[in-house]
Design a protein around this nucleic acid. Sequence first.
DNA 1: GTAGGGTTAG
Length: 620
Amino acid sequence: MALITFINHKSFFTNLNYHNNKNLSFFFFFSSKSQQQEKPFCTSVETIVTLLKSCSKKTHLLQIHSHIIRTLLIRQQIILTSFLSCVALSPLRDLKYSNRFFAQIRKPDCFNFNTMIRAYSQSDFPLEGWKFYNEMRERGIRPNPLSSSFVLKSCTQVSSLIGGRQIHARILQDGHQSDCLLLTALMGFYAFCENGTDARLVFDEMPQRDTVAWNVLISCYARNKRIRDALILFDVMQNPEYGSKPDDVTCLVALQACAHLGTLEFGERIHRFIDEHGYGDATNLRNTLIAMYSRCGCVDKAFRVFQGMSERNVVTWSALIHGFAMNGHGRDAIEAFREMQRMNVPPDEQTFTGVLSACSHSGLVDEGMMFFERMRTEFGISPSIHHYGCMVDLMGRAGYLDQAYELIISMTVKPDSAIWRTLLGACRVHGHVALGEHVVSHLIELKAQEAGDYVLLLNTYASVGDWDKVADVRRLMKEKGIQTTPGCSTIELHGQVHEFVVDDDSHPRMKEIYAMLDEIEKQLKIAGYVAEVSSELHKLSAQEKGFVLSYHSEKLAIAFGVLATPPGKTIRVAKNLRICTDCHNFAKALSSVYNREVVIRDRSRFHHFRQGNCSCNDYW
DNA sequence: GTAGGGTTAG
């Protein structure tokens, strides 16, 4: 009896360790003993609640269940609530059991309903939570903001825009339109559904906006192709009118936007902000900094961040490897991979994507094959579509087109349009017309053909001089109303991003830019630069081709760079498509004649031009 | 004496 008093003693349970099974064993010992002796074993409600928290096995839960039934504790709402939370939400989650238990509760309250909705939102059947959400309304129980927030989570899980809109309407009906956390969740939902307009509307309607609300809006813009707006918000939120201070998450999201846009100056500014505000130790921020610098073409700065880190995880190493890969430092990427193994950091899927793409960008065919094999045999990672993509690129660039085709056919995963497109690119480089046509038929089968694919096919014909076929494809594109993506290049100057498209005349300094471009061409021609006419698609006279080539967007951006920056300053340009041979030659010549370093990021990688050479060794 | 919500790394 003394012992029973002891187990009931409050101090014992307030000090107990939740994961200490000793306490449970104690409890079960007394419980079964009292059952044998048919004597009631009294426990306080608090004891049961505390014990429930330390449950790590379902058998324990069942024993507690039978105990609370025997001791009539089942009548107490607090026990029911705790028990339901335990069955529905702890790692022991069992939805069938939760449902049965829920049905036993005579008067379930809002909290009980929320528990069920929340449990389903985390399960494989998220929409089942709706039933409970509707039932509580039918029973006249008013949902609180959390009820809506849990159903919203279910809608996000299944990307149900209609469901989310219904919740939105209910939030207004229930008068929860001032709940900042709920509205932030709603914004997050719209952002997830790529609906930036509605996310913005919710944001505008919020009575108060804290940093998290700003973060959601910035991340929404960054993910939905409004990257420049995302960066503008980083400054806007700090205006005295709004007075929100960016936190570590704001910096992280903004850095991702900088990486996308290739805006080095803005990225550096955020880097300083991070250090000044003491966020600098966070591994996730450091990892994103590595990615940002790499994607802005500054591997040395990325490496400096890497060196300054006291803790490095698989993400850190993968970011570094990816950085080396996209900047053409294939050997360094492989060395980093080896170093990572020496440090006993196990690689994952994304590490190998980096290693394989490093091999493909640097033409390391044998090494790539070896890593692809080791990935499966040594590390037990089965190849994803991305790994196959790297291998097709690797083999395709090296001219093993048929083997690349065989690899696609042998894949365990269904080939997507991106992988066929990679092979199509290789067909263009090697002038393999027959395979190119075959690949296009695969794309048509997938109903995934894009303007760029026709352009690649057209280029393949052009590369072997089949101008009739080129004209056919052009006609076909015209008939189908397919429009090509216009080439677009950006250059950052004093934190401002300047954008150029083909034949652009919208820039305020356009006259000067064209004059500068003419002057540059004149100087380069003296040094031996000849316009590469095969890059141009149209069947034009050589003179006309030369004329059209002069206005490629990257040339305009470079001319603006020469015009607007002091001599010797590196010119950094980002382009949405892949750079053409002519512009590549142009940049190479310029880097030597004007003694300028030029860094161009195209759709797939970086080109560092220095003294007449490119880091890609004309291999891209 | 119960007690759950929003953003975030390669």
